[in-house]
Nucleic acid binder design. Structure first.
Lengths: 256, 256
DNA sequence: GAGTGGTCTAGACCACTTT
DNA sequence: AAGTGGTCTAGACCACTCG
């Protein structure tokens, strides 16, 4: 903390530089769970930033879930470790890599088809529009985890099926090949039962418990670019979530 | 918005009064999904508050998940209707009331029992400790939604079973009767099948899809005070979640 | 009383989007 | 060019916690 040199002309906001530095102190164990972080006042004076900026750095740590504030007492390092995040947009590939698993995928089908009613609504496309539909079995460490059907508006990435190796990360291809960066998504989770096809593909019995995910993903600016329905094994998949206190301001994050 | 009279001497923060007023406009439909909220500038001038205060009101709506901001464009009403929040610590009662449903509960059993292995681990109790165990069927608008088993360390609230009406909110009793304010929780969600007892209590068939929730709740400071396992109907319960990009600042929330 | 976070002000400059 | 949100400053008063 004493050794932090802020770059006042960087495009990186000051509060973010401070947040990152504190995060490193926490990860490295220099700041231990339950111990107080430097107060707003201290950060403000030591780094010669306004108190509001120091405050923003601390609050951003609170919304990450790695710290919590107590009025009149201070801001403390959170007891719980999880930094992985049910709140972060992540592809299956990113998620599994973050957990230390080796992800890959088996292609079931990939084709250009008319957008269905459901996907048209989610993607806000006219009903005559075409979408690229990719169905894959998602695999982690050689174990089948789920079946996923992705729909993308065809005009957005017309030659995707030529460029994309379906065993790899779709999000990476979209980002690197088309400049499409997914920054937000809405996800609905339901509990259901595997149908015969899903059971066969996943190597489980028909009627086994599964999670049903429905996700609509957006780029900066709010345009919907992806509609995904997936079925994941209930015996191999868990969602974990960190809940924070009530709702005027920040909150925190969990993982799986 | 024009008619809003701020009480500048209230203990209720200005930004919170503004937030509540905007929330009403959204709920009532005066502000529709996808439409812009008043800008920071406009709120600031119209209500004669500083821009930072107007901004805080808008950002608090974003972290509730009912709005989202776009740099250079504005702040818009979120498409998602449900304001309830998968990120907020909320009791079943609070959750249902926020959705406009009438919650109540049917008591199955309440007793003082030795803490089990699982709960001992979660609550960090020695294995010989006793816990108060309360089993209830959770009901919303006369429809059974789930079965819930709550364990609380007995020393924390020794006379709870005398004081607590199990048809009401446990969180409110803990807060008002014992000064126990739950501010954080870790929750695990799994997909499963109803067993015979659950099926009977919930009026569904054995083997129907259900959500299994396991929650450990904490007070300020990190002490675990509650361990809950619950089974909720897959046909009546959904989780919705808004995922944001990585983690500098605020994010938003979904519901069910 | 000293230290802390919570709220608030009245400005400022910037990057971005739209017209 | 005008409007928007994102960041930042340098103050201020308050309520709360703790010694």
């Amino acid at each position: 903390m004493e050794s932090l040199n802020l770059d006042r002309h960087s495009v990186v906001p000051l509060y973010f530089q401070i947040q990152q530095h504190l995060l490193q102190d926490i990860r490295s164990g220099r700041l231990k769970a339950g111990k107080p972080l430097p107060s707003e006042e201290v950060i403000s004076k030591r780094l010669r930033v306004s108190r509001m900026t120091a405050r923003q750095a601390l609050k951003s740590l609170c919304s990450l879930g790695v710290a919590y504030s107590q009025r009149g007492k201070g801001t403390f390092v959170s007891e719980i470790k999880l930094e992985k995040n049910f709140r972060q947009v992540q592809s299956f590939t990113e998620e599994m890599e973050a957990r230390g698993s080796r992800p890959h995928s088996k292609l079931i089908s990939s084709e250009v088809v008319p957008v269905g009613e459901e996907a048209a609504l989610a993607l806000r496309l006219p009903p005559e529009e075409k979408v690229i539909r990719i169905r894959r079995v998602r695999v982690a460490d050689a174990l089948p985890m789920g079946v996923e059907t992705t729909c993308l508006p065809q005009p957005l990435c017309p030659d995707l099926l030529d460029k994309f190796d379906p065993r790899t990360s779709l999000y990476r291809t979209l980002s690197q090949g088309y400049g499409i960066h997914i920054v937000q998504a809405d996800e609905v989770v339901e509990a259901g039962l595997a149908n015969s096809e899903e059971a066969r593909l996943l190597g489980i019995s028909k009627g086994s418990p599964v999670f049903l995910f429905t996700r609509t993903s957006y780029v900066q600016g709010g345009q919907a670019v992806e509609y995904v329905k997936s079925t994941f094994r209930g015996d191999r998949y868990k969602i974990t979530n960190r809940l924070g206190q009530s709702g005027n301001d920040n909150s925190s994050g969990g993982g799986m």
